[in-house]
Design a protein around this nucleic acid. Structure first.
Length: 493
DNA sequence: GTAGGGTTAG
């Protein structure tokens, strides 16, 4: 263990008993005669069903629509999994006679274009932001860098950071730490460490910089390297903080070094380090995932004695490991117990329980929990649907999976890449030739919505269609394949 | 949107 120094007092995060999301748009008190409804839902479905761009533009430019940055952002968020539609909406509104986009809407648009790997559009947007004097800000650069890195272009992410100032956005210690973190999260810790060594003097690396690098090593399970860098930090006179310790602790458990993790935890306690709910949640989860349910429970029960209250995340951690390593019944018991104590389960809680029930073959009960989500003001999200669809398909109930998928198309939760992959795979378990056609249609639809199919998926469908004599659809997909080296199409701003 | 805990499959 590196030299433990005193940690300055740190307030534990407050217990979060309420879901932070209240997405309802304030309804106008008295309904006016006949304006287009301003609810995000109505506008989103208008955009999704519209076939005539001109009419859509007219409607969106209608003076009765009270555009605000919040409303625009909400709509973009709802259209997130239909990136072209979302960008089209953004574009139409940029020609609005009186409304003009906010910085955050620009950032969302940049994020969408970058996800499509349409970098030309990204830079057009950046220049437009600049001419409107809205940005780009360090956040804009963080978004682009993250997308570069996740597209396997870590070097471009670094270059972007190095050229920020050329776009009128000064570098700082914060932006330095951000680029290091982006690289680390993509498991490019070596690259991050090299950058760190070059610039730590220039930017006056602080405890955050060191924590980011240590966490980077932990993410690739190199706890020894993490300790090394932290020792170096202490040698330069910087003191570790609670985050530092929590990073190391998580690192040990993630690397499967359970006893080292436990010893580290005991050492923290012995040296009277501040311990917070994150510390305890890490240990509860760490023990749980290796099946040490009793020890997980003991730590969970013990934290209250130390005057650290579990958070919803702590419950989620324990509920998840009970599902996996104990029984879903005990998980449900704990779920009810947390509710009794006044905690409000969040999306993660529900998704964890629903997955547990599905895994135990309890599809009916899983559906019940899904219906129960509304009571806690959380709607099922893509992950919820993906879980249900996957398990319905696995259980051979492909029809029910498709039913849920249909529901997503019309509702306010659009399918994402995973949804398509799950369904397309499911289309290959039965040997019905119709299924192959459905798979083909799904493939075309996903590309249309800005999702790249894997080569494997594409070839599998193509071969199937050719073998079963569906030349027409196969040809259509072949046309897609020819464009698959890059992203299907560039967005027209 | 500067760092740490909870959802995803071995």
């Amino acid at each position: 263990m590196f030299t433990l120094l005193k940690i300055s007092p740190h307030h534990s995060k407050r217990l979060s008993l309420h879901s932070p999301f209240t997405t309802t748009l304030a309804p106008s008190p008295s309904p006016s005669p006949s304006p287009p409804a301003a609810s995000p839902t109505a506008i989103v479905s208008l955009i999704l069903t519209s076939t005539n761009p001109q009419t859509l533009t007219q409607t969106l430019h209608s003076p009765t629509l009270p555009w605000t940055p919040q409303l625009v952002d909400q709509i973009i968020k709802r259209l997130w999994n239909h990136a072209y539609k979302a960008l089209h909406f953004f574009t139409v509104l940029s020609y609005h006679p009186t409304y003009s986009h906010s910085l955050s809407s620009f950032d969302h648009a940049v994020d969408l274009a970058a996800r499509l790997r349409d970098y030309k559009t990204v830079w057009t947007l950046v220049h437009r932001m600049k001419s409107l004097r809205l940005g780009p800000t360090p956040k804009t650069f963080a978004i682009i860098a993250e997308r570069y890195a996740s597209a396997g272009k870590a070097d471009r992410a670094v270059k972007l950071f190095l050229s920020m100032h050329e776009h009128g956005c000064g570098q700082s210690l914060t932006s330095f730490n951000t680029i290091l973190d982006v690289l680390c999260k993509e498991k490019k810790v070596e690259k991050a460490y090299n950058l760190f060594k070059i610039f730590r003097g220039k930017f006056k690396a602080d405890v955050v910089s060191y924590n980011v690098i240590a966490n980077g090593w932990c993410l690739v399970k190199r706890t020894g390297k993490a300790l090394e860098i932290l020792t170096e930090m202490v040698d330069t006179g910087l003191e570790p903080n609670l985050t530092t310790y929590n990073i190391m602790l998580k690192g040990y458990f993630r690397a499967g070094q359970i006893e080292e993790g436990w010893r580290f935890f005991l050492e923290m306690k012995k040296r009277k380090c501040e311990m917070d709910v994150v510390t305890y949640t890490t240990v509860v989860h760490g023990f749980g995932v290796v099946g040490e349910i009793k020890r997980a429970r003991k730590v969970f029960d013990g934290m209250i004695k130390e005057a650290v209250l579990p958070s919803v995340a702590t419950y989620n951690a324990l509920i998840q490991v009970l599902c996996k390593k104990d029984s879903v019944e005990n998980a449900v018991v704990l779920f009810e117990e947390m509710v009794r104590k006044g905690y409000v389960p969040n999306l993660t809680t529900y998704n964890v329980v629903i997955r547990g029930l599905c895994h135990a073959g309890e599809m009916e009960r899983a559906m019940e929990f899904m219906g129960r989500m509304k009571d806690d003001e959380c709607e099922p999200n893509v992950q919820t649907y993906n879980i249900m669809i996957r398990y319905f398909c696995d259980a051979g109930d492909v029809e029910k999976g498709l039913d849920l998928f249909e529901k997503m198309g019309t509702g306010d939760c659009l399918p994402n890449l995973d949804t398509y992959n799950i369904l397309i795979s499911a289309m290959f378990v039965r040997k019905k030739s119709d299924d192959l056609l459905v798979a083909g249609k799904l493939l075309i639809e996903m590309v249309d919505r800005g999702f790249m199919p894997r080569k494997f998926t594409l070839n599998r469908i193509l071969n199937g269609l050719l073998l079963t004599g569906n030349q027409g659809l196969a040809k259509e997909i072949l046309r897609l394949q020819s464009r698959c080296g890059r992203f299907p199409r560039q967005f027209k701003l």
